[in-house]
């Protein structure tokens, strides 16, 4: 399954707004997407799941996408995570 390791850029980590952007994008893909931090893996389309990982600024996470268009979706998700949504 195609996956990618990304370092999260948002200054406060993946809290409400950045997590929402991320899980919305994951849900739009229409294919199963998981995000893993350490040993814990969750459904990336679930904002509460994503928040529950407690992802901080600078944390490394692994996104995995199954199915059609995996690479393009991985590109999009990677870009979201490497943008600092908290920058004023």
């Amino acid at each position: 399954m195609p996956e990618r390791t990304v370092v999260v850029a948002s200054a406060h980590g993946l809290h409400a707004r950045p997590a929402a952007l991320f899980s919305q994008a994951a849900a739009r893909g229409g294919v199963p997407v998981t995000v893993r931090k350490g040993a814990k893996s969750v459904n990336a389309a679930s904002i509460l799941g994503v928040i529950s990982l407690g992802i901080d600024h600078g944390d490394e996470v692994v996104i995995a996408v199954e199915g059609e268009g995996a690479d393009a979706l991985l590109d999009e998700l990677t870009e979201l995570l490497t943008t600092d949504h908290d920058a004023a």
């Binding site: 707004r17 919305q24 969750v42 459904n43 389309a45 904002i47 509460l48 799941g49």
Partner: peptide
């Protein structure tokens, strides 16, 4: 609106 949109997503959340 962005913050509220995040809240609305929580109400739709599959894990929840």
């Amino acid at each position: 609106q962005e913050v509220l949109e995040a809240q609305a997503l929580m109400a739709d959340d599959p894990t929840l």
